[in-house]
Structures are given as structure tokens and as C-alpha cells.
Design a protein around this nucleic acid. Structure first.
Length: 576
RNA sequence: GCGCCCGUAGCUCAGCCGGAUAGAGCAGCGGCCUUCUAAGCCGCAGGCCGCAGGUUCGAGUCCUGCCGGGCGCGCCA
């Protein structure tokens, strides 16, 4: 519909002899407020400057030059020189016809470009359960991926499993200490180790597999360790414990480490499945080491002249490419850094044919963006192929209980309280680059105060109409309803059509802006327009033609809400 | 100290590439169920868009400074 107005406007500008390159900045947009029609253009305001003309006069000329059209009821000049377009009911009725024809596919776009995007999100260290902060990234990344796909992109999603570094060793010794405790030893948990119930649970499950083979007297182990914090250095202490575990357990250490990690990954997978979050691939960091991808990336960086050696370490010259300082790739002791793995991973992403590597990170990683972009630039010469979306922090509130940091509450416990649908909606209704205050009490309310039910309720109400229709022994079909659309004409009906007509452009905008919250807000408006219409006019009336037309509108509305909720990963219930 | 994000109604937040009287939900007040689900609808009230300059025909939106809040600045991952 907007495109139609644009072509109409351009024809008028052609008639007036405005050269195409003078139309820079001219836009057609949806009018704000009710008095300004359906669409508006700033053409006269933009052209007035270059043409040195009175904008209102120019606007009047544009209006006169508009080709005649049944779809445009009237066009007029308003304010400083806007041209407002008022569309006829007939134009909206035929728009609804096109929406019905599109069926379930309505809103989905086929793009010729077929941009390939790899969305990597969550990627939390597999050293414990996901917390509420991860949950926001999970909802965002999953929903963004669905939206990008609907907008015509080729989308692939990945979770990067950090299973190669020191964190994994710390997890392993944390579990080892818990195993010793189960065997009757009285070990002291290092300051730097992971505390928490889940460590004990992991140990409990692994106890049988490892039995007594990993049990050593704690006093012997402790004797070999430097003192822990607060007297000593906690990092040195835990490092020594890791070494102790490696020598004492031998090849059992690797198994313990691997199994402990696998159990954390399984736990994370279970939580995400419950949260309706899907990944196409779980990408293991250690596989980069195994298949030589890190060496491949480092060689490439050296070949391209971006590295140098200093103090025995290999550095990447990221500061020349926008980063604050250079970064170490290979330490003096020969081991590669986490950054080196990440560089190799991003090279791999692009070498697999993705046009954009889109990473969803917590906002606390923002300092990392410049160095990864610099690395991608150094590797491929196209740093812009790397894109990071930063998710701001979550704080939890519940009534007067005060605020809790979201990083201390597990996602599972939040889902226990509020459920997947409400939780996803609360995460997604806010812009991701805004701090989020999550009202747990509100999210778990099954009442009219809870905004997610507002959308679902609209869907359920429509579903109920179809059941009623069947009970009355009536039926409805699209092709005959299509001929009755001229029966729609009340303000509420036209307003609802205008809202559902914006679904495709809403998807495009949400995809382009990486902003699922725009879709959440849009669906609220659709539901609002539906509820208002539902209250003002009875849909299941006696008159066959009118009923058929009104059900056509209800059908299209239901389709938009169901598709929209699906893009947010939220269910669309048949009854409530 | 340097860097990134953010200050909009009592609260939580929208505000699309600068556009016309700044919007929504909750909280508050007042109406609407013998008719398709009242988890709904209709109405009222509520705002120096943090402060001060600047750019522009036009600024909540762009630029600069200041105030206030969050986060980050490892040969950790």
C-alpha cells in the first residue's frame, strides 16, 4: 500500500518535471494521528529548499498533479506543507483480499539477495546453569533469528561452547572436590572454584562412573598447594590444584573434565529447549584446536602482515584497525589465548559462506567488539561482516521485595515462576539495548494486568468464533468471503485492516533494526484494534454476507497474531 | 583517566533515516456483561522529553559541554 502511494507520488513528481536525483530525502510514511489521513509525504518540504519555493504552494501543485485513482479518496495539504493521502475503504478492502490470498505465508518475504546470516547467541560458559541475564540473550537471539528468516535472510544459529579453556579445568576440579567430599574427605573448596548445588549434583551423578579411582586423601593434596585467598593468591591456588588433579588422576582427569562439561551442556540444552530456543549447531571451541583452525587463522594473520612478536608472545596489531591496543594471540609459553580461538571461530563462520556474523553478547562484553572487528578486518578485509548486538542487563523486581541482579537467579527458576510465554514476552517487549527491569510478580500473574495474555486472548477469542460457527452448523470459506469484503466499512474494521496491513513492513523493520521489540509492540496494537472491533460489532450475525466478511477480517487478524507470536517464540492458544 | 550504553507521565517503557497537538501498559478516578470469552471495551486525569548551548524552515531524535545512573578497560575465559 505504501509502495503504491510512492509510485503515485513519483508519477506526480514526473509530471511536474522534478528530476529523480532531486528527490533525495523525500519519503512516504504512515501519518501520525487520525486527522492526517493514512499516508503523508514531506516531498514539498524537501523540494521547496532546492527549488526556492513556498512549500505549501508546491504541495498544492503536487496534489493537482496526482493521477486519478479509485484508491485515493482525497489528498490535501496540511501543516507546513505535508501532503496527506486519505485512502478509500475500497483500497483497504482489496488490501485485505490480498492478505487473505497470502494465507499463512502473509508477512514472510522472499528476498532475492538471500543474505546469509549466522546468529551466535547465549554461548554461556558450560560451567553452570543459565541465569536470567543469559535468558534475555536467548530470547532475543532466537526471536531475531526467526524474524530475519521471515524477512528473507538465510539464517543459521549457533551456540559457541567454551570447552577448551581454564574455566573447564576449574569446573573439573570443583567437581573433583565435591567427589572427594562424597567419599568422606573434608576438602576445602578453593575461592576461585565454582560453588553451588549443581556442582554437588554433577558429582553425585558422576560418582558411580568414577567410583574410588579419583579419591585421594585431601591432606596430601592440600600439602602440595600454595595457600588460598585471603592469605594467598586464589588463582595460583586453583592452578596448582588443577595440576595436582592432572598428575594424580592421569587419563581419568580428561574423562572427568569431559563428563562434567557434558553434563553442564546437557543442563543448558534442557533449559533452552524448555524456553523454546533452538540452535542449529553447538559449536565446540576445542574442535578448533583439534582440526587446526587456530593455526590456520594465525598463519593467515601473519601472512597478511598483521602480527608481530614481542616478549616471546605473538601479537595481533588490532590497534591499527580501531581497537584500543594490540592483543596477544599466543602466549610466551606457547599456548593460544581465548581471543585466538574466537578469531579462528569468526574466520570459520565467514569461510563457511556467511555474509554476516552476528553475535549477541551481554553488554559487559562491549569492550570486546572493537578487537573482534579488527581481527575480522585483518583476516578478510571486511570488518563490517562482523556485527555485535549487545544485550543490556536485567534486574529482577517483585513487588516491594526490592531489586535482585538477574545474574544470580537461574533461568529455570524464573521459568518455574512465570512460564515460557510470559518470560519471553517480558524480555522481548523491551529494546535490547535498554536496561530491563523484570517484574517477576507481574509476569507470573494470570490476570489482565499481564500484557502477554492480551495478545493471546485476542487469538483465543477468534479461535472461539470458529467453534461457535461450527456449533451453529455454519461454515466459512475464503474464496466466497473474498467477494463480500465491501461489507466492511466501520471505523473499527478499517482501523483493524490498516493495522494488519503493516505486518510485512513491521517484520522488515524489526529485521533491519535487529529489534524484535518492534514486533511485540506492533502485535499489541493489532490486538488492541481487534478487541475494540470485537466489542463494537458482533461478528457472528445472521446476514451471511456480513458475517462472511467479518470472519474474513477475523481470520486475517488471527493469522497475523499467530505468525507474530511464533516469531517471538510465544504460543497462540486456542482457548484461555 | 579512557571507552561503550542510558536519563521521556507516579512506576515500567515505546517513539521508525529530524517532521505536524510527545504515545502505550500499570497504578488513580468514572462508566459498560439477559447478545460471539469482562484475561475485554469506553472515557477522565497525568509530561521544562536530565540541564545548558549549537545546527536546522523544523530537535525527544543530530553536535558540544555539564550533571546523574549502568558497564568495560588481563599473556582470564
Amino acid at each position: 500500500m505504501k509502495a503504491y502511494i510512492e509510485t503515485t507520488l513519483n508519477r506526480a513528481l514526473d509530471t511536474l518535471g522534478v528530476p529523480p536525483d532531486a528527490r533525495e530525502g523525500v519519503v512516504v510514511e504512515h501519518s501520525r494521528g487520525t486527522g492526517h489521513g493514512d499516508f503523508a509525504t514531506n516531498a514539498a518540504l524537501v523540494l521547496a529548499r532546492s527549488e526556492k519555493r513556498n512549500p505549501r504552494e508546491l504541495a498544492a501543485q503536487i496534489v493537482r498533479a496526482l493521477p486519478a485513482s479509485d484508491d485515493i479518496e482525497k489528498a490535501g495539504v496540511a501543516g507546513p506543507g505535508f501532503v496527506n493521502f486519505f485512502l478509500s475503504p475500497g483500497a483497504w478492502q482489496s488490501e485485505l483480499g490480498r492478505i487473505l490470498d497470502a494465507g499463512d505465508e502473509y508477512g514472510r518475504q522472499k528476498s532475492d539477495a538471500n543474505l546469509r546470516i549466522l546468529v551466535e547467541f547465549v554461548s554461556a560458559n558450560p560451567t553452570g546453569p543459565l541465569h536470567v541475564g543469559h535468558g534475555r540473550g536467548a530470547a532475543y537471539g532466537d526471536s531475531l533469528a526467526r524474524i530475519l528468516e521471515a524477512a528473507g535472510c538465510g539464517v543459521h544459529t549457533e551456540y559457541y561452547v567454551n570447552d577448551a579453556g581454564r574455566q573447564a579445568d576449574i569446573l573439573a576440579v570443583s567437581v573433583w572436590v565435591a567427589l572427594l567430599e562424597l567419599a568422606g574427605e573434608r576438602p576445602r573448596l578453593p575461592e576461585a572454584a565454582y560453588p553451588g548445588e549443581y556442582i554437588k549434583q554433577t558429582a553425585g551423578k558422576l560418582r558411580e562412573a568414577f567410583g574410588e579411582t579419583v579419591v585421594h586423601p585431601w591432606k596430601d593434596i592440600a600439602a602440595a598447594l600454595p595457600s588460598d585467598a585471603p592469605e594467598g593468591d586464589k588463582e595460583a591456588h586453583v592452578n596448582a590444584l588443577i595440576e595436582e588433579a592432572k598428575t594424580r588422576l592421569g587419563k581419568d582427569y580428561e574423562s572427568l573434565r569431559r563428563d562434567a562439561l557434558a553434563m553442564q551442556v546437557e543442563g543448558i540444552q534442557a533449559t533452552l529447549k524448555r524456553f523454546n530456543v533452538h540452535f542449529d549447531r553447538w559449536f565446540s571451541e576445542s574442535s578448533l584446536v583439534a582440526d587446526g583452525a587456530i593455526e590456520h587463522a594465525l598463519t593467515r594473520l601473519s601472512d597478511r602482515g598483521h602480527t608481530y612478536e614481542e616478549e616471546g608472545a605473538l601479537w595481533l596489531e588490532t590497534s591499527a584497525l580501531g581497537d584500543a591496543k594490540d592483543r596477544v594471540l599466543r602466549r610466551g609459553d606457547g599456548t593460544t589465548t581465548y581471543f585466538a580461538s574466537d578469531v579462528a571461530y569468526h574466520l570459520d563462520k565467514l569461510e563457511r559462506g556467511h555474509d554476516i556474523a552476528l553475535d549477541v553478547w551481554g553488554a559487559d562484553h562491549h569492550g570486546y567488539v572493537a578487537r573482534v572487528r579488527a581481527a575480522v578486518e585483518a583476516l578478510t578485509g571486511r570488518g563490517e561482516a562482523f556485527e555485535a548486538q549487545l544485550i543490556q542487563f536485567v534486574t529482577l523486581t517483585s513487588g516491594r521485595m526490592g531489586k535482585r541482579s538477574g545474574n544470580f537467579v537461574t533461568l529455570d527458576s524464573l521459568l518455574d515462576e512465570a512460564g515460557t510465554d510470559a518470560t519471553r514476552f517480558f524480555y522481548l517487549a523491551r529494546s535490547h539495548d535498554q536496561h530491563l527491569e523484570f517484574d517477576v510478580k507481574l509476569a507470573q500473574q494470570r490476570s489482565n494486568d499481564n500484557p502477554v495474555y492480551y495478545l493471546q486472548y485476542a487469538h483465543a477469542r477468534i479461535a472461539s468464533l470458529w467453534r461457535q460457527l461450527k456449533e451453529k452448523g455454519l461454515d466459512w470459506n475464503r474464496s466466497s468471503a473474498r467477494r463480500q469484503l465491501s461489507r466492511l466499512g466501520t471505523n473499527h474494521e478499517l482501523t483493524l485492516i490498516k493495522h494488519i496491513a503493516r505486518f510485512p513492513e513491521t517484520i522488515s523493520a524489526a529485521a533491519a533494526d535487529r529489534a524484535p521489540h518492534q514486533l511485540a509492540h506492533y502485535l499489541g496494537e493489532v490486538a488492541q484494534a481487534f478487541h475494540a472491533n470485537y466489542n463494537s460489532e458482533t461478528i457472528l450475525v445472521e446476514d451471511d454476507a456480513v458475517r462472511s466478511a467479518r470472519l474474513a477480517l477475523a481470520s486475517a487478524t488471527q493469522g497475523v497474531i499467530a505468525s507474530g507470536l511464533a516469531l517471538l517464540g510465544i504460543s497462540a492458544p486456542e482457548r484461555m
